[in-house]
Design a protein around this nucleic acid. Sequence first.
DNA 1: CGGGTACGTAACCACTTAGGTACATTGCTC
DNA 2: GAGCAATGTACCTAAGTGGTTACGTACCCG
Lengths: 105, 105
Amino acid sequence: MDAVLQALADESRRTVLEILRDHPASAGELAAALPIARPGVSRHLRVLREAGLVDVRQDAQRRIYTLRPEALVEVDEWLGPYRRLWESRLDALHTEIARGKKARR
Amino acid sequence: MDAVLQALADESRRTVLEILRDHPASAGELAAALPIARPGVSRHLRVLREAGLVDVRQDAQRRIYTLRPEALVEVDEWLGPYRRLWESRLDALHTEIARGKKARR
DNA sequence: CGGGTACGTAACCACTTAGGTACATTGCTC
DNA sequence: GAGCAATGTACCTAAGTGGTTACGTACCCG
């Protein structure tokens, strides 16, 4: 969990994920899509790899990265207890609005 | 979003949120629950405040912090497109398992 | 085998961050 | 107003992070 959130805290890494959400991509492709140089991207990819957010497969000289969305399940689960809270708040808000409408009649 | 994820990347700050999930707490209480000194906690709280994750209310000398779970809606929304992916993967896995069972008969 | 391609890693620098100690501030109480 | 309690801020230091350039390595192709 910690590794995943740590990885997500950097925008460049989130961008990588967004690209991989569409299709697998080589390290070079990803580097081309980011405003930083290749070695930096390489390190970003390492972080994502170690956090379990991506998989790599080798194709001759190229390394093809693919998304492993399962890793985000952890975040989703962490969110669970908070989700209940904000949902009940939203419910309260809706009730309030409904009451407001009634009162305004 | 960035501010929120940045805040969540630190474990101490997540711990603060977990405490506040149960009940509002003063800065002092939170400091007592963490392994770091009060000034550090104060700074963590500032990050959380600026990310919109907590609210503060003043009660004499004390500052009472309360959770603002709505801020996490952003994370939940960001997760959306990935959730679809991992859910479809899990579906595929279940299908695979079902097929395996059939084959083993 | 020589050369080009696609990566990753090492070394280095600038900047940020987390923690601690010391101090300032605010508000109650006597 | 003096004194104590609760908290935030300033300042310092150690450690981590992101970026770059230079270099090493594996692989295909002629």
